[in-house]
Design a protein around this nucleic acid. Structure first.
Lengths: 194, 194
DNA sequence: TGTATTACGGAGACACTCTCCGTTTTATTC
DNA sequence: GAATAAAACGGAGAGTGTCTCCGTAATACA
């Protein structure tokens, strides 16, 4: 009967909690995009019109907040993998996905400074949401290997590392072009020895 | 006549200032290597046995300190470029240098978290010392292009970005191997279309 | 040795992180 | 529509790190 409550204490979650959570996410994304991943969390709380305690209750750490903010985007990337794999030849799918990854960062759908502190430190985003990303590139590479377009001994994570790396050096007006060129280099370098 | 003093007020720099500067650098490198690039600077000052004011006078920002700490290493990288270029065929020189770069980070001669905060933010290391690094890879790539081993339209900085990127994801016991594999991928991907 | 200059040091103002707990809001019960 | 207990709020404040300021000390030079 009870749908989502395994135990005898069912209680509808409070509406204000839900509201606040969404509002914090919304304002946090704006703040991160505007000022980078190191902005004061108290400041984010203020902008969202909540107390610091509320923010920290919903998101215990900065990284938890970052992860929540970008979870949607990460899921979109995972979805794109499925779509590309359905519609495109193996190598094309891989290329398209890598370019999409780059574009997400270029257009600040995912901000580079976020990846920066996430990947750099003892972060969790690329362990939690990261599993999705890893799964995506893993599937793409596997298919490309099966089709014979990519060397069999290629570790998908190598490519991912390089991609993330480029996003770290995201400075200068040229960087997006550079990222695209790098995708081509990576793909070319991943082909099997003829 | 006067060698290093453009103006009429020549005065030998104070010995204690020089001593302190060196001592700070020495202890800072240890501290960075041990605890990462985010350690408290007041703590570094304490370990070096100087006041916070002294540390900040010598190195106004965290990045200034990081740059000074790693300047020696950066110069070694630049020197290695010259040596490799002298002794090795173009592609081999490029490969050797890229591997050396990776090794420096692997062996903590240059710590990855340092590069992390350096490259990510509005850092200066890869503008100041960075010129040396850029110069090195530029020379290597240019020679490899001249010898026909590398595509003529390759931007040397693309390779550098990828290298730095990998160092960011420096986690897990496998990462050094991954970095080496990536170097091979990058080189293979940089060859001219046959 | 005297003196001008340079550098030192650490107290303290300011900023950010994160927690604790008294107060308020909400869902539910009657 | 109250009454009640549970859930969530908010912001003061303790803890920590950053960076500056300026009275004091060390040094180079005459």
């Amino acid at each position: 009967m009870a749908r989502k409550t395994p135990q005898p204490t069912p209680r509808k979650p409070r509406a204000d909690a839900q509201r606040n959570r969404e509002r914090i996410l919304e304002l946090a994304k704006k703040a991160f995009t505007r000022s980078g991943a190191n902005i004061s969390l108290d400041e984010v709380a203020k902008q969202a019109g909540v107390g610091a305690g509320t923010l920290y209750r919903h998101f215990p750490t900065r990284e938890a907040l970052l992860e929540a903010v970008y979870r949607t985007e990460v899921e979109k990337l995972a979805a794109a993998e499925r779509e590309f794999s359905d519609k495109l030849p193996a190598v094309e799918a891989l290329r398209a996905w890598m370019l999409l990854f780059v574009d997400y960062i270029a257009t600040k759908e995912i901000i580079a400074p976020a990846l920066n502190s996430l990947v750099g430190g003892a972060s969790k985003v690329f362990e939690a949401s990261g599993d999705q990303i890893k799964g995506a590139i893993h599937a793409l590479v596997e298919r490309a290997i099966a089709s014979g377009d990519i060397r069999a001994d290629l570790d998908p994570l190598d490519l991912l590392r390089a991609l993330i790396g480029v996003s770290n050096v995201a400075s200068g007006p040229d960087w997006q072009q550079s990222a695209r060129r790098l995708v081509e280099i990576l793909i070319a370098g991943s082909r099997p020895p003829q």
